[in-house]
Amino acid sequence: MGTGYSIKIVGLPAGIDSKALEHSIIKLLVNINSVMSTYQQDSELSRFNRNHSTQWVAVSSALATVVTEAQKISQLSQGAFDVTVGSLVNLWGFGPVHLTSEIPSLHQIEQAKEQVNFNLLKIRSLPPALKKERGDLYVDLSAIAKGYGVDQVATLLESQGINNYLVDIGGEERLKGYGPKGTAWRVAIEQPLAGERKVAHILDLTVGAVATSGDYRNYFDQNGKRYSHIINPSTGWPITHNLASVTVFSATAMEADGLATAILVLGPEQGFQLAEREQIAALLLIKTPAGFREEVTTHFMSNFLLGKSAE
């Protein structure tokens, strides 16, 4: 996944060997990568991307699960979130296929955009299968699979009777119960600043998942302008609005991961409208000449700022 992970457990149940548990977690994450990574040429997703057939292709239930959630968020956001954006991600140098720090030509962008349309990716649940309506679709699950990985680790922990934990993969988190001091887990939300780490908020949570999407960690600069890895599927260009980061709280990290990206792509006005309409608990940090302005949804206010736990 190109990032680090941290798992904190309080009160390991009797009979659970920590080394064996660590081995199980590593095996689980390696397996998820082997299914959903675009950086591994032999992953299930990479093989699907290379397959230009427009017939049904049998896939694992895990891959079908993540694509199903992704398509739901695509419908919700009217395509702002789109896992078929991979051709554009690669073109702009943020994927494994075409690494560059150069701005693509308008012709290249328009060509890549023709390969981007979530409606051209079909899902069958039983037996699990995917189908491309256009053979050169390139699926990139980077904006949602990490959250899925967090959820799977959490499920593994709970299957072992562990109910006080915090799972973090690259900043996407899921937690339950209480921390080492017997109090709620403390989750920090970063200021969206490039090159430094500064906390904007700390929230006390006892259950749920949190994910942040931002334009400030993965980018390149050219001619005094910053180009983020967050690509707008409808324009083919990195986002240019002043919404710097979106933090979403949800029951699952997979949903929070995808929704945060969708809201970020939509921008401060449309993104906030989507979050309010769908009762999403979201915190938006917006760049202004005077610093960052915060916008919080009604659901965020009622569930977090008033002291309630994520549910």
Rank of each mutant, 00 (worst) to 15 (best):
G86W: 06
S101A: 11
N163S: 12
K113Y: 10
E69D: 12
V139E: 02
V67Y: 00
V57G: 00
D168W: 02
V85A: 14
E110R: 15
N163K: 10
S87I: 00
S53M: 04
I103M: 13
G147Y: 07
N51W: 01
L106A: 15
P128W: 11
Y165G: 01
Q115C: 12
L120C: 09
A62M: 12
Q78T: 13
Q41H: 11
E102M: 12
L157Y: 05
D151A: 11
E44R: 08
N117A: 09
G86H: 04
T84E: 12
S60C: 08
L166G: 04
L76C: 03
N119T: 13
V67A: 09
W92G: 00
G95Y: 02
H98T: 12
R124G: 14
S105I: 00
A143C: 06
L45N: 06
P104K: 10
E69V: 14
Q115T: 10
T100Y: 11
V167N: 03
Q55N: 14
A154Y: 04
L99Y: 08
K131H: 09
A143G: 15
E158Q: 15
V89D: 03
G171A: 08
R47M: 13
G170F: 05
L130Q: 01
G79A: 03
S60V: 05
S61M: 09
S74E: 07
T54N: 12
P127G: 05
K122Q: 15
L99R: 15
N90Y: 02
H107E: 15
T65P: 00
Q55S: 14
S43R: 02
E44W: 07
G170N: 09
A154I: 04
A112F: 03
P104H: 09
H52Y: 09
S60N: 07
K132T: 08
I162E: 00
P104N: 11
L137Q: 01
H52K: 13
G171T: 05
I144L: 03
K113I: 11
A64Q: 15
N164V: 08
L141M: 12
T100I: 07
K72Q: 14
E158N: 11
Q111S: 13
Q75G: 12
S46L: 06
V59P: 02
S77M: 12
R134M: 13
K122D: 13
I169N: 09
A145C: 08
I123K: 08
Y165P: 01
